[in-house]
Amino acid sequence: MAIEVRIPTILRSYTGGAKVVEGAGDTLGDLLADLDSRHAGLRGRLVTEAGALHRFVNVYVNDEDVRFLGALDAKLNDGDSVTILPAVAGGAFGFAAAAAIAAQVSQRAALAAR
């Protein structure tokens, strides 16, 4: 089952510079595991240690944001196109917001480690 995956500039160091790669999987989580077997490290840039989709990326299946499709559980079919983009966000309230995100991430990691 071939699924086309579009890779953003910032992650092309994991794909030997390739803009588009192919992978397989019944869900987004499976697809990322499959990609990571050939492009080691790619999955770690998209999925947190706690096993959730990273806040810093947007992933789309065809024309849908996967956050509305079950995130890593989003179902995939042969011929689907997956697009990865860096989320564009930020703002002045930097320190507190970043600390809140970091706390959330480490809390999830701690829960997962139990």
């Binding site: 953003p8 500039t9 910032i10 810093f56 990326v57 860096p86 989320a87 564009v88 966000a89 930020g90 703002g91 002045a92 309230f93 930097g94 320190f95 917001a97 970043a98 995100i101």
Partner: peptide, 10 residues
Amino acid sequence: SRTDISFAGE
């Protein structure tokens, strides 16, 4: 800000 830096993906 730190948030700007964390998110800078381009």
